[in-house]
């Protein structure tokens, strides 16, 4: 996958869906986070895939300024029911708890006032919900983000299961990068 120039893309498009080959995922997500932290001062990161402690460690290893981020962590509690509290992290019980996730995102948009939100990643949602539910959730989320006037980057893997969702969401987000032709 070619390197995405996120700053340029986000000048022209408010919401972007980036489809990433699985083998490149870990590196790509760090590169995207680094670019965003270099261009924005307040970022909200929704992590469905990586627990907060190793995620922050990876950020630090990649010279990403963790202090610019507020994290919504939907995965740590699946392994550690009572994680240590952190003022920059909101924990969701599980990635399939879409109601709590939605409420928390609204809260962060209202209180943290981010310049941009990163959703990592839609592929996790597809493990628990079918394409229709995931698509509906994303429609509502994109509408909410648009109403707040902030930018958004969504990521997903390039698996077979994701392709229908990518097609559906191409009608909702401003641009899809790396998706099906």
């Amino acid at each position: 996958m070619d390197r995405v120039n996120l700053a340029e893309e986000l000048k022209r498009n408010k919401s972007i869906l980036i489809v990433i080959p699985t083998q490149e995922y870990s590196m790509a997500i760090m590169d995207l986070s680094l670019q965003l932290s270099n261009n924005y001062s307040r970022l909200a990161y929704i992590s469905m895939n990586k627990m907060i402690t190793p995620l922050k460690r990876s950020f630090e290893d990649n010279d990403i300024d963790v202090k610019k981020f507020f994290f919504i962590d939907a995965i740590t509690k699946t392994a550690i029911p009572n994680p240590p509290s952190d003022p920059n992290v909101a924990f969701i019980p599980a990635p399939n708890d879409l109601t709590k996730l939605s409420i928390q995102i609204t809260k962060v948009l209202q209180t943290f006032d981010p310049d941009c939100i990163i959703f990592d990643s839609l592929s996790t949602l597809l493990i628990y919900e079918d394409n229709t539910i995931t698509s509906q959730f994303m429609h509502s989320l994109v509408n909410k983000i648009n109403a707040f006037g902030i930018r958004a980057v969504f990521t997903c893997l390039n698996g077979d299961k994701e392709m229908q969702l990518v097609r559906d969401l191409s009608l909702v987000v401003d641009k899809v990068i790396g998706g099906p032709a």
Partner: peptide, 18 residues
């Protein structure tokens, strides 16, 4: 047991929890 879902190298994080 709990059910976790992940991809890439993140599965190692669970093996190393605490």
């Amino acid at each position: 047991p709990n059910i976790v879902s992940t991809f890439g190298d993140s599965i190692v994080d669970f093996i190393l929890v605490q």
